[in-house]
């Protein structure tokens, strides 16, 4: 396996330039949807939900909604976005004819996907703060959680992108993986409300440790278990990051 070099930053810069040139064509949708969900679920459903410790329901779901949509950002970027650049625009072919290699391209895509997560996370955090849903200054660590999360989901997404035959395959990725993960990771209800089996299964969903971590920083409540969540995120990220370098090389050079 070959490693990536600092040159990956060139791919990241390319994607950044395009994003800030065209942001108005997709960013509003990405921001509007989580706000609508937050208010609809938080205020609508929240009126019927009483939490044990007296926390308002909308405050309970805020951290999960933020990292949930940060997950969607990285996932869309490194599935549809990367696939279009790779297959339709042949952008990757153009780049690997320069001093950059395939690994630089893959790493650049993943780091850019993670950046999208951070951007979404920051905007959402600002909105949540404006609605007075965030109380602890520790919440300022949330962008870091979003970055780690973004690296994880961008890596998984790019791995999937490097092996799919067509753009339609991403329908499966979202309906069978991302959406279930969103609902079974403790965003909307505490994991303890699920039956035992589902609780165990939900720890397979890679968003679960992220929601756990996000809730801890937003509420400013830390426990030793968080280190396990962090370790799980890092381990999965490293695994999928390096697998995607290998599968991307296979895809682009043969």
């Amino acid at each position: 396996m070959r490693l990536f070099s600092w040159r990956f930053i060139r791919v990241w810069q390319r994607n950044r330039d395009v994003f800030f040139r065209l942001w108005h064509s997709e960013a509003p949708g990405f921001i509007a949807e989580p706000i609508i969900i937050l208010l609809a679920m938080g205020l609508g459903l929240g009126a019927y939900v009483g939490l044990v410790d007296g926390q308002r329901y909308i405050e309970f779901i805020t951290p999960g909604i933020i990292v949930g949509y940060a997950m969607f950002s990285a996932s869309f970027e490194c599935t549809y976005g990367s696939f279009i650049r790779m297959e339709y625009q042949k952008t990757f072919d153009a780049i690997i004819a320069t001093p950059l290699n395939v690994e630089d391209v893959a790493a650049g895509e993943i780091f850019w996907g993670a950046t999208r997560s951070v951007l979404t996370g920051c905007v959402m955090l600002t909105v949540a703060a404006a609605f007075q849903l965030v109380h602890s200054p520790w919440a300022l660590l949330l962008p870091i959680v979003c970055f780690l999360e973004g690296m994880l989901f961008a890596s998984i997404a790019l791995f999937f992108t490097s092996i799919v035959p067509s753009i339609y395959s991403f329908n499966y990725y979202f309906s069978l993986f991302i959406t279930p993960v969103f609902f079974f990771s403790g965003v909307f209800f505490p994991l303890s409300s699920f039956p035992d089996v589902v609780q165990k299964l939900s720890w397979i969903a890679p968003l679960t440790p992220v929601v756990y971590l996000a809730r801890a920083v937003v509420n400013g409540e830390f426990q030793f278990n968080l280190l396990w969540a962090l370790a799980l995120i890092v381990a999965l990220t490293v695994l999928f990051f390096f697998i995607s370098l290998v599968t991307m090389r296979r895809r682009l050079t043969t």
Binding site: V18, K90, D93, T98
Partner: peptide, 25 residues
């Protein structure tokens, strides 16, 4: 390298295509 298939970057303008490519180098 001048490829047979057009792989210009459609997300960028003509000038940005060249500038972005120069940055790869």
């Amino acid at each position: 390298v001048v490829p047979q298939l057009d792989n210009l970057d459609p997300d960028l303008t003509v000038f940005q295509n060249l500038m972005t490519f120069a940055r790869y180098f």
